[in-house]
Design a protein around this nucleic acid. Structure first.
Lengths: 257, 257
DNA sequence: GAGGTTACTTTACGCCGTAAGGAGTCGCAA
DNA sequence: TTGCGACTCCTTACGGCGTAAAGTAACCTC
């Protein structure tokens, strides 16, 4: 499932996202739940089951039925928006620039990456229609603050912010989905890869001759962390070296100023 | 829905992906359908309805029930894999290098981008567990062939291939999902954005003061194509300038050789 | 023409998000 | 004190989904 932000009433969604401490006195029975509790439960369930978590599962975790949630939250889409923004609150809102913008961006990317890995379902919340929550803003503000310090014009910075975002998301997705797929089927990465590549070379024996450049790309490997599974190791290496290249490009633009 | 590649029997999946022209004579009634026809229908339905298309809808388009498809294809996941690989067949398998690697990579990215826009559901097929189909290989082979010509070592190229891939996917996703969300609700981008930003400034009036760097980033805009809707315009600009920065980074690495 | 194989259908199961309506609980005004 | 409206939470139900199971009819081979 992919969730598009805020399909429902925009006012209701945004009020929930930016809600302050609501303390109105109201009649009727005391609420046994709260939006916060539901969002927490939702995150916990989604961390375990991925974006395909069900309202019933969230309710169950709170000792309620699924329908009880609808008292607090208009629907699943809005709940996901709230979960997304809450998750973004885990990240720092500003970065130390004393080691230069490059070190700061690297730390931002690292933090973001780790957050994605902790909450892989976040990677499936649409980016195109931003959730427009306060913490989502804050995270981008943090990156913008670092990059503005380079002195580059806004026109160029927007592309760079996008590129960094896309890159971190993509790289994290590679790891996150590998884990999720393994977890869902109980298969480890290696097993999955082994089973398929074995069948592949059996059916298509001269794969290396058909795709020589891909084969060339596989050369020159160095182990990074032998503790990590194969695919993950690969992803971490690609993350580091890809980010380095990307930031070199930024550095080039800065140097031309 | 996000589809993880090949959850089913690996042999069956990969045989389907790499199947040659199957011409065995078989007993029983003549097949009225074929894997190819089903894959085509699936792509057509997914282009219209997105990844949340249903097996029933694909069957209906072929004048059959949903269950008829299961004679040819093990399940929806496998069908999506086949649709994915078929879609990749739309792309060129090699690029002219006479204008240099940079021009070639730019064309590759442009082609890839357009393919994603034509078939937005492709962006929701997992990347981490590659589908391992022949055309997916061919597309990456094409990019690898261009980049190998730079002379950079495989270690560095893997990160670069990843970065370019992530970037193009992310940038395309921004446009694709904006369109999809608009299409699903019948809202145009502008309306969506207007409705939300209006509520936002009402609820949080001093947004610009809370996130000054984001506000700074919005400066210095220039119109690219006034025909395109707002969000899309933005995305196209970011795609171009982001790719430029990324390739500058690659160029830096090449220059150091 | 019999028997096995295959294409396709019908039916059904257990999920999903959520609409509708009812039961019980509380604050407050009469 | 009583009644009422507001509120939380429940049960039930609907129409969707992917697909398992079993049945029917077409076709090939012997």
């Amino acid at each position: 499932m992919v969730v598009y932000a805020g399909q429902g009433d925009p006012r209701r969604s945004i009020e929930l996202l930016w809600r302050g401490p609501v303390t109105e006195k109201r009649s009727g029975p005391k609420p046994g739940l709260s939006v916060d509790a539901i969002v927490d439960a939702g995150i916990a369930v989604a961390d375990e089951q991925g974006m395909a978590f069900s309202m019933r599962a969230v309710g169950e975790r709170l000792g309620r039925t699924a329908m009880a949630l609808y008292t607090y939250v208009p629907g699943k889409n809005e709940l996901v928006d709230l979960m997304y923004d809450r998750t973004m609150a885990e990240l720092p809102t500003s970065y130390d620039l004393s080691d230069g913008w490059r070190a700061a961006v690297t730390r931002w990317a690292q933090d973001m990456w780790e957050c994605y890995i902790r909450h892989p379902w976040v990677l499936q919340v649409s980016q195109a229609r931003p959730v427009l929550g306060p913490h989502e803003f804050a995270v981008t503000e943090a990156l913008a603050a670092i990059l503005v310090s380079t002195g580059l014009p806004g026109r160029e910075l927007r592309g760079i912010v996008g590129a960094i975002n896309y890159f971190v998301r993509g790289a994290a997705q590679t790891v996150a989905e590998a884990r999720a797929a393994g977890g869902a089927t109980g298969e480890a990465d290696e097993e999955w890869w082994y089973a398929r590549s074995a069948v592949l070379v059996e059916i298509e024996p001269d794969l290396e001759k058909k795709f020589p450049m891909l084969h060339l790309l596989e050369n020159d490997r160095e182990p990074i962390d032998p503790e990590l599974p194969y695919l993950e190791n690969d992803a971490v290496e690609n993350f580091r070296s890809g980010l380095r290249v990307l930031l070199n490009g930024v550095e080039g633009a800065v140097a031309k100023l």
